[in-house]
Design a protein around this nucleic acid. Structure first.
Lengths: 159, 159
DNA sequence: GTATCCACTGGGCAATCTGTTCAGTGTTTC
DNA sequence: GAAACACTGAACAGATTGCCCAGTGGATAC
C-alpha cells in the first residue's frame, strides 16, 4: 500500500511520458527491466495504478463548459437519484457528500445554453429537491497526481 | 473536433482495455491497422485524447479521504491563491467558478483528522477569506467518459 | 553461525508489435 | 474528368514484450 522511492519514480515517469515501455523505463531509472516489470505488476495488483485509459478532453469533444452541481436529495431517494444520474452522459462523476448538499456532481455541456438543458435533465427527477450550480471559468490546476505521488514516496522514505 | 462512430469505438475500446495495441484494435474493429493508427494520431493531435497517463488511486496511496472545498478569495488575490494552492500536493485540482464561491478545489487526506491539516494549509494564506468543505462519503459515479464519447459519436452520426 | 526468503541483476529466447512505406481502390469535391 | 482524401492489404527491419534462468546481496528466523 505504501510506495517507495522507486515506485514513485516509476509512476512519475509514466505520468510524464506515458508511451514509453518497460525497457525504456528501466534504462531511464537505471534498474533492471525485470525490476520495473515486477514493480509495475505490484502497483497494478495493489490498485495504486488503476489503469492506463486514454484521457479524453470533453472540450475537444464539443463540451467546453464544465460545472459543478450541488444537489439536495429527498430522504431515502439516494439510490434512485444515483441511478438516474448514471444515465446522463453529461454527468462525468458523482459523489455523495457531507455538508449543505447531499450530492455533488461534475457536469459538462456544449454551451452555457446547453448547460440549462443538462441541468433540467439532471434535476428533472422526483428525488432531487434542489440544485445549485457553479460554472467553471478556468481550470487553474488540472487534475494532477504527481505531487501527491512524490509526497507519498517521501513519507515512505523517512519512515 | 467532432468524432465519428469509428473514433468513438476506438476511444471506448481503449478505455475498456487500455493495454491492447494498435494491431489488436484493428482486429477487433475490423479495419486496417493503418486506419486505426491514423485515427489515433488525429485524435491525439486534435487534443481529444490528451494522453495515456496512469490512473493513480489516491486511496491506495494512503489518502482515502476526498473532499471538495469552496473558497472565497479576497479581490485581486486570485493569482497568488492559485500559486499557493499549486504548491499543496493534496490539492488535486482547482477551478475558478461563478456562484457563491470563487474557487473550488478537490482535496485528499490520509484521514479525517489529516484533512484538518490539509485545510489549514490550504486556507493558511492571506488571500483566502473563507473555505467551506464537503467531505466525500461515496463516489457513486467514478470519473467516466465513455457515455459522453458515445453521445458525441451519436450526434455526429445523425448530422 | 547458518539456512531461508526476497528483491534485484544481467542475460538469453521466441513471438509479437511498431513505425513506416507502398500501390491500389472507392468516394467526394470542384 | 481531375484532384484530394481515407481506407485497404501487404511488406520490411527494428524494437519490445513475456518469459525463463542462474547468481548476488541483504534481511530474517532458527
Amino acid at each position: 500500500m505504501a510506495i517507495d522511492h522507486l515506485d514513485g519514480r516509476i509512476i512519475v515517469l509514466l505520468a510524464r511520458e506515458p508511451r514509453i515501455g518497460v525497457l525504456e523505463m528501466s534504462r531511464r531509472l537505471g534498474v533492471a527491466r525485470g525490476t520495473v516489470q515486477a514493480r509495475l505488476d505490484r502497483l497494478q495488483s495493489n490498485g495504486v495504478i488503476r489503469g492506463f485509459g486514454p484521457e479524453v478532453d470533453p472540450a475537444a469533444l464539443g463540451y467546453p463548459v464544465t460545472a459543478f452541481a450541488t444537489l439536495q436529495i429527498r430522504q431515502g431517494q439516494g439510490a434512485d437519484v444515483r441511478a438516474h444520474l448514471a444515465t446522463v452522459p453529461e454527468v462525468l462523476e458523482l459523489h455523495t457528500t457531507t455538508g449543505t448538499g447531499d450530492m455533488m456532481c461534475r457536469l459538462v455541456a456544449r454551451s452555457n445554453a446547453d448547460l440549462q438543458r443538462v441541468i433540467d435533465r439532471v434535476v428533472g427527477f422526483d428525488g432531487i429537491v434542489r440544485a445549485s450550480t457553479a460554472i467553471v471559468m478556468e481550470n487553474a490546476v488540472p487534475l494532477r497526481i504527481i505531487p501527491l505521488v512524490e509526497q507519498a514516496a517521501q513519507d515512505r522514505e523517512s519512515s
